[in-house]
Design a protein around this nucleic acid. Structure first.
Lengths: 230, 230
DNA sequence: TAATAGTTCAATACAGTATATCGCCATGAG
DNA sequence: CTCATGGCGATATACTGTATTGAACTATTA
Protein backbone atom coordinates (compact mmCIF):
# COMPACT_ATOMS: atom_id res chain seq x y z
CA UNK A 1 0.00 0.00 0.00
CA UNK A 2 1.58 3.25 -1.12
CA UNK A 3 0.74 6.74 -0.05
CA UNK A 4 -1.46 7.01 -3.09
CA UNK A 5 -3.99 4.46 -2.20
CA UNK A 6 -3.96 5.21 1.45
CA UNK A 7 -7.59 6.08 2.19
CA UNK A 8 -8.46 9.73 2.53
CA UNK A 9 -8.71 10.83 6.11
CA UNK A 10 -12.34 11.00 7.10
CA UNK A 11 -13.04 14.30 5.38
CA UNK A 12 -13.85 16.75 8.10
CA UNK A 13 -17.07 18.11 6.57
CA UNK A 14 -16.84 21.66 5.34
CA UNK A 15 -18.70 23.81 7.83
CA UNK A 16 -21.98 25.00 6.51
CA UNK A 17 -23.63 28.36 6.71
CA UNK A 18 -26.73 29.97 5.30
CA UNK A 19 -24.78 31.63 2.53
CA UNK A 20 -23.44 28.38 1.18
CA UNK A 21 -26.82 26.71 1.46
CA UNK A 22 -28.57 29.54 -0.33
CA UNK A 23 -25.91 29.61 -3.02
CA UNK A 24 -26.35 25.90 -3.63
CA UNK A 25 -30.11 26.25 -3.78
CA UNK A 26 -29.84 29.11 -6.25
CA UNK A 27 -27.47 27.15 -8.44
CA UNK A 28 -29.90 24.26 -8.47
CA UNK A 29 -32.82 26.54 -9.28
CA UNK A 30 -30.89 28.29 -12.04
CA UNK A 31 -30.23 24.96 -13.66
CA UNK A 32 -33.52 23.19 -13.24
CA UNK A 33 -36.09 25.64 -11.98
CA UNK A 34 -37.65 25.90 -8.57
CA UNK A 35 -38.98 22.39 -8.69
CA UNK A 36 -35.42 21.12 -8.93
CA UNK A 37 -34.73 22.52 -5.50
CA UNK A 38 -35.21 19.85 -2.90
CA UNK A 39 -33.57 19.87 0.48
CA UNK A 40 -32.02 16.56 -0.35
CA UNK A 41 -30.40 17.85 -3.52
CA UNK A 42 -29.23 21.04 -1.89
CA UNK A 43 -27.66 19.01 0.88
CA UNK A 44 -26.11 16.59 -1.58
CA UNK A 45 -24.47 19.45 -3.41
CA UNK A 46 -22.84 20.41 -0.14
CA UNK A 47 -21.82 16.84 0.67
CA UNK A 48 -24.16 16.77 3.60
CA UNK A 49 -27.15 14.80 4.72
CA UNK A 50 -30.55 16.39 4.31
CA UNK A 51 -31.06 16.91 8.02
CA UNK A 52 -27.93 18.93 8.30
CA UNK A 53 -29.70 21.88 6.71
CA UNK A 54 -32.21 22.17 9.49
CA UNK A 55 -29.54 23.60 11.70
CA UNK A 56 -29.47 26.66 9.51
CA UNK A 57 -32.92 27.00 8.09
CA UNK A 58 -36.13 25.88 9.65
CA UNK A 59 -38.25 25.20 6.60
CA UNK A 60 -38.13 25.08 2.85
CA UNK A 61 -40.20 28.23 2.56
CA UNK A 62 -37.57 30.01 4.56
CA UNK A 63 -34.95 28.83 2.12
CA UNK A 64 -37.00 30.32 -0.72
CA UNK A 65 -37.23 33.61 1.17
CA UNK A 66 -33.48 33.62 1.56
CA UNK A 67 -33.01 32.93 -2.13
CA UNK A 68 -35.25 35.82 -3.03
CA UNK A 69 -33.40 38.12 -0.72
CA UNK A 70 -30.08 37.04 -2.11
CA UNK A 71 -31.16 38.05 -5.60
CA UNK A 72 -32.26 41.41 -4.26
CA UNK A 73 -28.60 42.09 -3.67
CA UNK A 74 -28.18 41.96 -7.46
CA UNK A 75 -31.14 44.26 -7.88
CA UNK A 76 -29.91 47.04 -5.62
CA UNK A 77 -27.81 49.32 -7.83
CA UNK A 78 -24.43 50.49 -6.61
CA UNK A 79 -25.26 54.13 -6.92
CA UNK A 80 -28.57 55.83 -7.38
CA UNK A 81 -29.30 58.65 -9.78
CA UNK A 82 -30.94 61.64 -8.19
CA UNK A 83 -33.97 61.62 -10.44
CA UNK A 84 -36.82 59.70 -8.82
CA UNK A 85 -38.18 58.60 -12.15
CA UNK A 86 -34.87 57.13 -13.14
CA UNK A 87 -34.65 55.38 -9.79
CA UNK A 88 -37.97 53.66 -10.34
CA UNK A 89 -37.19 52.81 -13.93
CA UNK A 90 -33.83 51.32 -13.06
CA UNK A 91 -35.29 49.31 -10.24
CA UNK A 92 -37.87 47.86 -12.60
CA UNK A 93 -35.30 47.01 -15.23
CA UNK A 94 -32.86 45.53 -12.76
CA UNK A 95 -35.60 43.36 -11.33
CA UNK A 96 -36.44 42.22 -14.80
CA UNK A 97 -32.83 41.44 -15.63
CA UNK A 98 -32.35 39.58 -12.40
CA UNK A 99 -35.40 37.52 -13.21
CA UNK A 100 -34.01 36.70 -16.60
CA UNK A 101 -30.86 35.43 -14.94
CA UNK A 102 -32.89 33.55 -12.34
CA UNK A 103 -36.10 32.58 -14.00
CA UNK A 104 -37.45 30.92 -10.89
CA UNK A 105 -37.70 34.35 -9.32
CA UNK A 106 -40.80 34.88 -11.43
CA UNK A 107 -42.53 32.14 -9.48
CA UNK A 108 -41.73 33.81 -6.18
CA UNK A 109 -42.07 37.49 -7.07
CA UNK A 110 -44.86 39.07 -5.12
CA UNK A 111 -45.79 35.77 -3.55
CA UNK A 112 -44.62 36.80 -0.11
CA UNK A 113 -43.66 40.11 1.46
CA UNK A 114 -39.94 40.59 1.00
CA UNK A 115 -38.48 41.43 4.38
CA UNK A 116 -34.88 40.30 4.06
CA UNK A 117 -32.07 42.80 4.49
CA UNK A 118 -31.37 43.19 0.80
CA UNK A 119 -35.01 43.60 -0.12
CA UNK A 120 -35.40 46.18 2.61
CA UNK A 121 -32.36 47.99 1.29
CA UNK A 122 -33.97 48.13 -2.14
CA UNK A 123 -37.16 49.52 -0.69
CA UNK A 124 -35.22 51.98 1.40
CA UNK A 125 -33.33 53.28 -1.59
CA UNK A 126 -36.55 53.68 -3.52
CA UNK A 127 -38.36 55.51 -0.77
CA UNK A 128 -35.39 57.73 -0.14
CA UNK A 129 -35.42 58.80 -3.76
CA UNK A 130 -39.09 59.79 -3.57
CA UNK A 131 -38.95 61.35 -0.14
CA UNK A 132 -40.58 64.73 0.04
CA UNK A 133 -41.93 64.74 -3.50
CA UNK A 134 -45.46 64.55 -2.18
CA UNK A 135 -47.25 63.52 0.96
CA UNK A 136 -46.17 60.17 2.26
CA UNK A 137 -49.29 58.27 1.31
CA UNK A 138 -49.05 59.41 -2.27
CA UNK A 139 -45.42 58.40 -2.43
CA UNK A 140 -46.19 54.99 -1.05
CA UNK A 141 -48.96 54.48 -3.53
CA UNK A 142 -46.66 55.54 -6.33
CA UNK A 143 -44.05 53.00 -5.36
CA UNK A 144 -46.60 50.26 -4.94
CA UNK A 145 -48.25 50.99 -8.25
CA UNK A 146 -44.99 50.82 -10.12
CA UNK A 147 -43.97 47.65 -8.31
CA UNK A 148 -47.31 46.05 -9.03
CA UNK A 149 -46.82 46.81 -12.70
CA UNK A 150 -43.37 45.41 -13.09
CA UNK A 151 -44.07 42.40 -10.92
CA UNK A 152 -47.02 41.47 -13.05
CA UNK A 153 -45.29 42.27 -16.31
CA UNK A 154 -42.24 40.21 -15.45
CA UNK A 155 -44.32 37.25 -14.44
CA UNK A 156 -46.27 37.35 -17.65
CA UNK A 157 -43.13 37.71 -19.70
CA UNK A 158 -41.58 34.65 -18.13
CA UNK A 159 -44.80 32.71 -18.43
CA UNK A 160 -44.93 33.43 -22.14
CA UNK A 161 -41.28 32.65 -22.56
CA UNK A 162 -41.75 29.26 -21.01
CA UNK A 163 -44.75 28.54 -23.15
CA UNK A 164 -42.79 29.45 -26.26
CA UNK A 165 -39.91 27.29 -25.14
CA UNK A 166 -42.23 24.38 -24.51
CA UNK A 167 -43.54 24.51 -28.05
CA UNK A 168 -40.32 25.72 -29.61
CA UNK A 169 -42.10 28.49 -31.42
CA UNK A 170 -41.86 32.25 -31.50
CA UNK A 171 -44.61 34.21 -29.88
CA UNK A 172 -46.24 35.00 -33.18
CA UNK A 173 -46.16 31.47 -34.44
CA UNK A 174 -46.97 30.17 -31.03
CA UNK A 175 -50.27 31.94 -30.96
CA UNK A 176 -50.90 31.15 -34.57
CA UNK A 177 -50.27 27.48 -34.32
CA UNK A 178 -50.27 26.86 -30.61
CA UNK A 179 -51.14 23.27 -30.54
CA UNK A 180 -54.43 22.33 -32.02
CA UNK A 181 -56.07 23.93 -29.04
CA UNK A 182 -55.86 27.65 -29.65
CA UNK A 183 -56.33 27.08 -33.35
CA UNK A 184 -59.60 25.34 -32.79
CA UNK A 185 -60.69 27.96 -30.34
CA UNK A 186 -60.02 30.79 -32.72
CA UNK A 187 -61.54 28.88 -35.57
CA UNK A 188 -64.86 28.69 -33.76
CA UNK A 189 -65.38 32.34 -34.54
CA UNK A 190 -66.32 33.04 -30.94
CA UNK A 191 -63.30 35.27 -30.47
CA UNK A 192 -63.15 37.65 -33.41
CA UNK A 193 -61.30 40.48 -31.70
CA UNK A 194 -58.76 38.06 -30.29
CA UNK A 195 -58.34 36.40 -33.65
CA UNK A 196 -57.71 39.73 -35.26
CA UNK A 197 -55.19 40.63 -32.58
CA UNK A 198 -53.33 37.37 -33.04
CA UNK A 199 -53.40 37.79 -36.77
CA UNK A 200 -52.52 41.44 -37.13
CA UNK A 201 -50.46 42.12 -34.02
CA UNK A 202 -46.83 42.96 -34.65
CA UNK A 203 -44.35 40.96 -32.70
CA UNK A 204 -42.68 43.42 -30.37
CA UNK A 205 -39.76 42.28 -28.34
CA UNK A 206 -40.39 41.73 -24.68
CA UNK A 207 -38.00 44.37 -23.44
CA UNK A 208 -39.52 47.12 -25.53
CA UNK A 209 -43.03 46.29 -24.46
CA UNK A 210 -41.95 46.13 -20.84
CA UNK A 211 -40.28 49.51 -21.14
CA UNK A 212 -43.23 51.09 -22.88
CA UNK A 213 -45.74 49.97 -20.29
CA UNK A 214 -43.37 51.09 -17.59
CA UNK A 215 -43.09 54.53 -19.11
CA UNK A 216 -46.84 54.86 -19.24
CA UNK A 217 -47.12 53.99 -15.59
CA UNK A 218 -44.31 56.35 -14.73
CA UNK A 219 -46.10 59.12 -16.62
CA UNK A 220 -49.18 58.49 -14.56
CA UNK A 221 -47.22 58.51 -11.35
CA UNK A 222 -45.46 61.72 -12.34
CA UNK A 223 -48.78 63.43 -12.87
CA UNK A 224 -50.01 62.41 -9.44
CA UNK A 225 -46.81 63.36 -7.68
CA UNK A 226 -46.98 66.77 -9.28
CA UNK A 227 -50.42 67.47 -7.94
CA UNK A 228 -50.50 69.32 -4.63
CA UNK A 229 -51.63 67.09 -1.77
CA UNK A 230 -55.40 67.17 -1.40
CA UNK B 1 -81.89 -8.62 8.89
CA UNK B 2 -84.27 -5.87 7.89
CA UNK B 3 -84.18 -3.77 4.80
CA UNK B 4 -82.37 -1.16 6.81
CA UNK B 5 -79.26 -3.05 7.49
CA UNK B 6 -79.14 -4.75 4.18
CA UNK B 7 -75.79 -3.70 2.79
CA UNK B 8 -75.81 -1.03 0.17
CA UNK B 9 -75.50 -2.41 -3.31
CA UNK B 10 -71.95 -1.96 -4.51
CA UNK B 11 -72.35 1.72 -5.28
CA UNK B 12 -71.97 2.05 -8.98
CA UNK B 13 -69.43 4.86 -8.95
CA UNK B 14 -70.82 8.17 -10.10
CA UNK B 15 -69.37 8.80 -13.53
CA UNK B 16 -66.67 11.39 -13.44
CA UNK B 17 -66.02 14.31 -15.70
CA UNK B 18 -63.65 17.24 -15.75
CA UNK B 19 -66.25 19.56 -14.30
CA UNK B 20 -66.74 17.47 -11.21
CA UNK B 21 -63.03 16.99 -10.76
CA UNK B 22 -62.31 20.68 -11.11
CA UNK B 23 -65.13 21.56 -8.74
CA UNK B 24 -63.75 19.19 -6.14
CA UNK B 25 -60.27 20.60 -6.54
CA UNK B 26 -61.55 24.15 -6.18
CA UNK B 27 -63.49 23.26 -3.06
CA UNK B 28 -60.34 21.75 -1.58
CA UNK B 29 -58.28 24.78 -2.50
CA UNK B 30 -60.86 27.18 -1.12
CA UNK B 31 -60.72 25.39 2.18
CA UNK B 32 -57.05 24.72 2.58
CA UNK B 33 -55.13 26.59 -0.08
CA UNK B 34 -53.39 25.25 -3.13
CA UNK B 35 -51.15 22.98 -1.13
CA UNK B 36 -54.22 21.16 0.13
CA UNK B 37 -54.96 20.04 -3.40
CA UNK B 38 -53.51 16.63 -4.02
CA UNK B 39 -54.77 14.23 -6.59
CA UNK B 40 -55.41 11.76 -3.82
CA UNK B 41 -57.62 14.12 -1.88
CA UNK B 42 -59.47 15.27 -4.97
CA UNK B 43 -60.13 11.68 -5.89
CA UNK B 44 -61.15 10.81 -2.34
CA UNK B 45 -63.69 13.60 -2.38
CA UNK B 46 -65.22 11.96 -5.43
CA UNK B 47 -65.12 8.47 -3.94
CA UNK B 48 -62.59 7.39 -6.48
CA UNK B 49 -59.09 6.06 -6.48
CA UNK B 50 -56.32 8.49 -7.39
CA UNK B 51 -55.62 6.88 -10.73
CA UNK B 52 -59.13 7.38 -11.86
CA UNK B 53 -58.43 11.07 -12.44
CA UNK B 54 -55.84 10.36 -15.08
CA UNK B 55 -58.58 9.42 -17.44
CA UNK B 56 -59.72 13.02 -17.47
CA UNK B 57 -56.64 15.07 -16.81
CA UNK B 58 -53.12 14.22 -17.70
CA UNK B 59 -51.20 16.06 -15.03
CA UNK B 60 -51.64 18.12 -11.92
CA UNK B 61 -50.55 21.25 -13.73
CA UNK B 62 -53.38 20.72 -16.14
CA UNK B 63 -55.78 20.50 -13.24
CA UNK B 64 -54.50 23.86 -12.00
CA UNK B 65 -55.03 25.34 -15.45
CA UNK B 66 -58.58 24.07 -15.45
CA UNK B 67 -59.19 25.54 -12.03
CA UNK B 68 -57.94 28.92 -13.16
CA UNK B 69 -60.13 28.81 -16.21
CA UNK B 70 -63.13 27.87 -14.16
CA UNK B 71 -62.70 30.97 -12.02
CA UNK B 72 -62.48 33.05 -15.17
CA UNK B 73 -66.13 32.21 -15.69
CA UNK B 74 -66.83 34.21 -12.55
CA UNK B 75 -64.69 37.03 -13.79
CA UNK B 76 -66.43 37.50 -17.11
CA UNK B 77 -69.28 39.93 -16.47
CA UNK B 78 -72.72 39.16 -17.84
CA UNK B 79 -72.98 42.36 -19.77
CA UNK B 80 -70.31 44.84 -20.68
CA UNK B 81 -70.63 48.59 -20.45
CA UNK B 82 -69.76 50.43 -23.60
CA UNK B 83 -67.05 52.55 -22.05
CA UNK B 84 -63.66 50.94 -22.51
CA UNK B 85 -62.33 52.42 -19.33
CA UNK B 86 -65.18 50.95 -17.35
CA UNK B 87 -64.59 47.62 -19.01
CA UNK B 88 -60.99 47.54 -17.88
CA UNK B 89 -61.84 48.76 -14.42
CA UNK B 90 -64.54 46.20 -13.95
CA UNK B 91 -62.33 43.43 -15.18
CA UNK B 92 -59.69 44.40 -12.66
CA UNK B 93 -62.16 44.56 -9.82
CA UNK B 94 -63.83 41.32 -10.73
CA UNK B 95 -60.49 39.60 -10.88
CA UNK B 96 -59.68 40.97 -7.48
CA UNK B 97 -62.99 39.86 -6.04
CA UNK B 98 -62.64 36.41 -7.52
CA UNK B 99 -59.23 36.17 -5.93
CA UNK B 100 -60.64 37.12 -2.58
CA UNK B 101 -63.14 34.31 -2.91
CA UNK B 102 -60.44 31.93 -4.10
CA UNK B 103 -57.24 33.05 -2.49
CA UNK B 104 -55.21 30.34 -4.16
CA UNK B 105 -55.77 32.13 -7.45
CA UNK B 106 -53.15 34.63 -6.32
CA UNK B 107 -50.56 31.87 -6.47
CA UNK B 108 -51.47 31.02 -10.03
CA UNK B 109 -52.26 34.44 -11.49
CA UNK B 110 -49.85 35.29 -14.23
CA UNK B 111 -47.91 32.13 -13.67
CA UNK B 112 -48.99 30.58 -16.95
CA UNK B 113 -50.68 31.92 -20.05
CA UNK B 114 -54.42 31.52 -19.62
CA UNK B 115 -55.72 29.77 -22.71
CA UNK B 116 -58.89 28.11 -21.47
CA UNK B 117 -62.22 28.98 -23.04
CA UNK B 118 -63.34 31.23 -20.21
CA UNK B 119 -60.07 33.08 -20.04
CA UNK B 120 -60.17 33.56 -23.78
CA UNK B 121 -63.70 34.87 -23.49
CA UNK B 122 -62.52 37.42 -20.93
CA UNK B 123 -59.72 38.53 -23.21
CA UNK B 124 -62.08 38.65 -26.15
CA UNK B 125 -64.52 40.87 -24.30
CA UNK B 126 -61.73 43.19 -23.27
CA UNK B 127 -60.25 43.48 -26.73
CA UNK B 128 -63.65 44.00 -28.26
CA UNK B 129 -64.25 46.93 -25.96
CA UNK B 130 -61.01 48.59 -27.01
CA UNK B 131 -61.26 47.75 -30.68
CA UNK B 132 -60.64 50.67 -32.95
CA UNK B 133 -59.67 53.12 -30.22
CA UNK B 134 -56.13 53.17 -31.48
CA UNK B 135 -53.82 51.08 -33.60
CA UNK B 136 -53.82 47.45 -32.59
CA UNK B 137 -50.37 47.43 -31.01
CA UNK B 138 -51.27 50.32 -28.76
CA UNK B 139 -54.47 48.64 -27.73
CA UNK B 140 -52.65 45.43 -26.92
CA UNK B 141 -50.09 47.26 -24.85
CA UNK B 142 -52.84 49.05 -23.02
CA UNK B 143 -54.55 45.82 -22.08
CA UNK B 144 -51.30 44.19 -21.06
CA UNK B 145 -50.23 47.13 -18.96
CA UNK B 146 -53.47 47.21 -17.04
CA UNK B 147 -53.39 43.43 -16.57
CA UNK B 148 -49.83 43.57 -15.36
CA UNK B 149 -50.84 46.14 -12.79
CA UNK B 150 -53.78 44.33 -11.35
CA UNK B 151 -52.07 40.97 -11.42
CA UNK B 152 -49.19 42.33 -9.42
CA UNK B 153 -51.38 44.34 -7.10
CA UNK B 154 -53.64 41.43 -6.31
CA UNK B 155 -50.73 39.16 -5.60
CA UNK B 156 -49.20 41.65 -3.24
CA UNK B 157 -52.48 42.25 -1.50
CA UNK B 158 -52.97 38.56 -0.84
CA UNK B 159 -49.37 38.15 0.21
CA UNK B 160 -49.79 40.90 2.80
CA UNK B 161 -53.11 39.54 3.91
CA UNK B 162 -51.56 36.17 4.60
CA UNK B 163 -48.68 37.70 6.46
CA UNK B 164 -51.12 39.64 8.63
CA UNK B 165 -53.15 36.55 9.25
CA UNK B 166 -50.08 34.62 10.21
CA UNK B 167 -49.18 37.12 12.89
CA UNK B 168 -52.72 38.06 13.76
CA UNK B 169 -51.97 41.71 13.44
CA UNK B 170 -53.25 44.58 11.37
CA UNK B 171 -51.02 45.90 8.66
CA UNK B 172 -49.97 48.89 10.69
CA UNK B 173 -49.18 46.91 13.78
CA UNK B 174 -47.74 44.16 11.72
CA UNK B 175 -45.09 46.38 10.29
CA UNK B 176 -44.58 48.08 13.62
CA UNK B 177 -44.11 44.95 15.63
CA UNK B 178 -43.62 42.31 12.98
CA UNK B 179 -41.78 39.75 14.91
CA UNK B 180 -38.51 40.82 16.35
CA UNK B 181 -37.09 40.76 12.87
CA UNK B 182 -38.40 43.91 11.21
CA UNK B 183 -38.13 45.77 14.49
CA UNK B 184 -34.46 45.00 14.75
CA UNK B 185 -33.93 45.88 11.13
CA UNK B 186 -35.57 49.25 11.47
CA UNK B 187 -33.85 49.87 14.77
CA UNK B 188 -30.47 49.59 13.10
CA UNK B 189 -31.07 52.96 11.53
CA UNK B 190 -30.02 51.65 8.14
CA UNK B 191 -33.49 52.27 6.74
CA UNK B 192 -34.58 55.75 7.76
CA UNK B 193 -36.99 56.38 4.90
CA UNK B 194 -38.61 53.02 5.41
CA UNK B 195 -38.84 53.59 9.13
CA UNK B 196 -40.53 56.89 8.54
CA UNK B 197 -42.94 55.32 6.09
CA UNK B 198 -43.86 52.59 8.52
CA UNK B 199 -44.23 55.09 11.30
CA UNK B 200 -46.13 57.85 9.54
CA UNK B 201 -48.01 55.98 6.82
CA UNK B 202 -51.76 55.99 7.18
CA UNK B 203 -53.42 52.63 7.01
CA UNK B 204 -55.47 52.69 3.84
CA UNK B 205 -57.76 49.82 3.14
CA UNK B 206 -56.68 47.45 0.44
CA UNK B 207 -59.58 48.06 -1.90
CA UNK B 208 -59.08 51.82 -1.94
CA UNK B 209 -55.40 51.53 -2.64
CA UNK B 210 -56.05 48.99 -5.38
CA UNK B 211 -58.63 51.30 -6.94
CA UNK B 212 -56.40 54.34 -6.75
CA UNK B 213 -53.45 52.69 -8.40
CA UNK B 214 -55.78 51.29 -11.01
CA UNK B 215 -57.15 54.74 -11.77
CA UNK B 216 -53.67 56.08 -12.20
CA UNK B 217 -52.82 53.39 -14.67
CA UNK B 218 -56.10 53.92 -16.49
CA UNK B 219 -55.32 57.62 -16.72
CA UNK B 220 -52.01 56.81 -18.31
CA UNK B 221 -53.60 54.42 -20.75
CA UNK B 222 -56.26 56.94 -21.64
CA UNK B 223 -53.61 59.48 -22.51
CA UNK B 224 -51.85 57.06 -24.82
CA UNK B 225 -55.02 55.87 -26.48
CA UNK B 226 -55.96 59.46 -27.18
CA UNK B 227 -52.75 60.16 -29.03
CA UNK B 228 -52.94 59.70 -32.77
CA UNK B 229 -51.00 56.65 -33.91
CA UNK B 230 -47.40 57.58 -34.63
C1' DT C 1 -5.55 11.77 32.80
C1' DA C 2 -10.29 9.97 33.21
C1' DA C 3 -14.81 10.63 33.07
C1' DT C 4 -18.66 13.05 31.92
C1' DA C 5 -21.50 16.38 29.88
C1' DG C 6 -22.96 18.49 25.79
C1' DT C 7 -23.32 19.44 21.01
C1' DT C 8 -23.39 18.28 16.39
C1' DC C 9 -24.49 15.44 12.72
C1' DA C 10 -26.31 11.48 10.16
C1' DA C 11 -29.23 7.45 9.68
C1' DT C 12 -33.55 5.89 9.98
C1' DA C 13 -38.42 6.52 9.90
C1' DC C 14 -42.87 8.36 8.51
C1' DA C 15 -46.38 10.20 6.09
C1' DG C 16 -47.30 12.11 2.11
C1' DT C 17 -46.65 13.28 -3.09
C1' DA C 18 -47.24 12.42 -8.51
C1' DT C 19 -47.41 9.09 -11.63
C1' DA C 20 -46.55 4.10 -14.31
C1' DT C 21 -47.86 -0.40 -14.69
C1' DC C 22 -50.75 -4.21 -14.64
C1' DG C 23 -54.35 -7.38 -13.65
C1' DC C 24 -59.20 -7.96 -12.67
C1' DC C 25 -63.90 -7.56 -13.20
C1' DA C 26 -67.96 -6.03 -15.28
C1' DT C 27 -70.15 -4.81 -18.98
C1' DG C 28 -71.13 -5.10 -23.71
C1' DA C 29 -71.58 -7.93 -28.12
C1' DG C 30 -72.16 -12.17 -30.59
C1' DC D 1 -73.87 -18.33 -22.40
C1' DT D 2 -69.36 -17.08 -23.79
C1' DC D 3 -65.95 -14.13 -24.88
C1' DA D 4 -63.60 -9.95 -25.61
C1' DT D 5 -62.80 -5.16 -24.36
C1' DG D 6 -61.95 -1.51 -21.87
C1' DG D 7 -62.36 1.18 -17.78
C1' DC D 8 -61.03 1.01 -13.10
C1' DG D 9 -58.39 0.26 -8.92
C1' DA D 10 -54.74 -1.79 -6.41
C1' DT D 11 -50.06 -1.97 -6.23
C1' DA D 12 -45.44 -0.14 -7.09
C1' DT D 13 -41.75 3.36 -7.68
C1' DA D 14 -39.24 7.06 -6.80
C1' DC D 15 -39.52 11.08 -4.70
C1' DT D 16 -40.73 14.82 -1.21
C1' DG D 17 -40.31 17.53 3.63
C1' DT D 18 -39.54 16.77 8.17
C1' DA D 19 -39.33 14.25 13.27
C1' DT D 20 -36.88 11.40 15.92
C1' DT D 21 -33.19 9.03 17.61
C1' DG D 22 -28.76 7.43 18.40
C1' DA D 23 -23.87 7.76 17.71
C1' DA D 24 -19.63 10.15 17.55
C1' DC D 25 -16.87 13.69 18.58
C1' DT D 26 -15.56 18.09 21.69
C1' DA D 27 -14.93 20.32 25.56
C1' DT D 28 -15.15 20.53 30.40
C1' DT D 29 -14.63 19.09 34.81
C1' DA D 30 -12.83 15.96 38.69
Amino acid sequence: MTVWDRPEPPTRPVPLDRERIVAAAIALADEGGLEAVSLRKVAARLDAGPMRLYGYISTKEELFDLMVDEVHAEILPEEQPGDWREVLRIRAHRTRQATRRHEWLADLLGGRPALGPNALAVTEATLAALDGLADLDTVLRAVETVSAYFTGAIRREIANLRAERATGLSKRDWQRASGPHLRRMLATGRFPALAKAVHDGTEVDAEASFATGLDWVLDAVAAKLAQPPA
